[in-house]
């Protein structure tokens, strides 16, 4: 499979990244090369192979429904680029 510049711009948009034309050109070329390499996976018959998401199989990791207030909530906004009255502040969201 090969990737087009248009697809690269689509993906950049999904990922919220601006790419100017030159960058899109470079990325298209590089991603195309990488995807070309990755195409080797098509050699393998995986029809009857299960997918692995995690290498160490664990199940049912659960916690009890008990409130824990040990986290200092004063710190929640300590890194906010912009804040006011206890809220994070962002440019107006228009719906």
């Amino acid at each position: 499979m090969s990737i087009t510049k248009q697809e690269v711009q689509y993906v950049a948009k999904l990922a919220r990244l601006y790419l100017d034309d030159d960058q899109a050109e470079v990325f298209t070329e590089q991603l195309d090369q990488i995807l070309g390499y990755i195409d080797q996976l098509n050699e393998i018959d995986v029809q009857n192979v299960a997918a692995t998401s995690q290498s160490i199989a664990t199940e049912n990791v659960l916690r009890d429904d008990v409130v824990d207030n040990t986290y200092d909530r004063e710190l929640s906004l300590s890194n906010a680029p912009l804040k006011e009255d206890g809220f994070f502040k962002v440019p107006k969201v228009i719906e």
């Binding site: 499979m1 689509y10 999904l14 990922a15 990488i34 192979v49 998401s53």
Partner: peptide, 28 residues
């Protein structure tokens, strides 16, 4: 950015099975 782009691409609509799911199977 390059890796975010690649990762976004392999998960995007229409490519998930061809890339991501296949990779998970080869991982097995």
């Amino acid at each position: 950015k390059r890796r975010i782009m690649l990762g976004t691409y392999v998960l995007s609509s229409g490519y998930y099975d061809a890339y991501y799911l296949r990779a998970q199977k080869v991982r097995t």
